[in-house]
């Protein structure tokens, strides 16, 4: 197990290394002179030179990469050109909205999908199954940001149960914060829950056809016991893969959904940074997102090993 975890950790490190090189290359090498790019057409040569100095653009590519990557490792993400504050501070502030939103949505999606998928598989071919399959088919087709707009229309504009947007901050306590994130999280979770429920259903049906389920039934387990004791854990393996993938979709989706609800999260920050050509902020944010996705992949790999003994070789 330790050996497996260690080998996954090494591959995590390698992925991060390669990803950081790619991001660095796209942001700092392809545009030519980032300083001139950031300042736009009307910049004076003096201003460009000053910014180059500030950005440390006068070193070699390798030394610039090393100082950027080294900075990232120590939590120094550089200073935002437009906000004039350390990027790390900007990000930390916004992360407290985007990350809880993604996790909230992930929790919702999983909590909805598991029982629904299980029910559909148990009632396979029945009315319940067709109903669930039809609903999830629709759920997949709905763009989350449009669904978010409909939620605002119904629950904020008409029913006035929730506010249409904005975020009160966590200092007012957990509940007001969660309440403000509820509509966005529901909007994010619904399409993902539809996908996950379908995956859960087909994984369960596939598992229920396996020989060991027949063995379990021959032992005297009822259908229900066979599902709960034998099928569920085996079906979890493909489901875990999808949950891992979903995290990256939810994080990306959170960025878009923040726009519908005017949430001051990473999404708002990244779009502002793009408009203001603040490459330093864009570069750090992209790296952070990719970092999150790679770490989640690593965690999913560890979860596999926890579920599946075949991955934990005795050595």
């Amino acid at each position: 197990m330790l050996r497996y975890a260690l080998s996954r950790a090494v591959s995590l490190g390698l992925s991060l290394l390669v990803a950081s090189v790619v991001i660095f290359a796209v942001i700092e090498v392809i545009p030519g002179d980032p300083a001139a790019y950031m300042l736009g057409m009307n910049a004076t040569p003096d201003a460009v030179a000053a910014l180059r100095e500030q950005l440390g653009l006068n070193g070699t590519l390798v030394s610039r990469y090393l100082s950027w990557a080294g900075g990232m490792l120590t939590g120094d993400f550089g200073v935002s050109y437009t906000y004039k504050v350390p990027v790390a501070d900007l990000v930390a502030q916004r992360l407290w909205i985007s990350l809880p939103l993604a996790l909230y949505a992930l929790a919702l999606s999983t909590l909805i999908a598991f029982p629904v998928g299980l029910l559909a598989a148990a009632r396979r071919g029945g009315v319940t199954d067709y109903g669930i399959m039809g609903t999830t088919q629709l759920g997949i087709a709905v763009p989350n940001f449009w669904f978010a707009m409909l939620l605002v229309l119904v629950f904020a504009v008409n029913l006035r149960w929730f506010s249409a947007g904005g975020f009160p901050g966590w200092q007012g306590g957990l509940l007001p914060g969660l309440k403000a994130l509820t509509l966005p999280a529901v909007a994010l979770a619904l399409p993902q829950a539809s996908i996950l429920a379908r995956v859960m259903r087909s994984a369960l049906i596939e598992t229920l056809g396996q020989d060991y389920i027949r063995t379990a039934r021959a032992k005297g387990l009822s259908r229900r016991q066979a599902v709960l004791r034998h099928a569920l854990r085996n079906a979890l393996i493909p489901v875990l893969t999808i949950i891992g993938l979903q995290f990256s979709f939810l994080l990306a989706g959170a960025i878009i959904i923040e726009n519908v609800f005017f949430l001051p999260g990473l999404g708002r920050l990244v779009f502002q940074a793009i408009t203001q050509r603040d490459l330093i902020v864009v570069e750090s944010l992209v790296m952070l997102l990719v970092f999150a996705v790679i770490v989640v992949t690593f965690l999913v790999d560890l979860a596999y090993a926890a579920v599946d003994p075949r991955l934990r070789r005795r050595t």
């Binding site: 060991y212 063995t215 085996n234 003994p309």
Partner: peptide, 10 residues
């Protein structure tokens, strides 16, 4: 088929 008759996770 004994190879598939047992639950691999137990």
């Amino acid at each position: 088929e004994p190879m598939t008759a047992l639950n691999p996770l137990k």
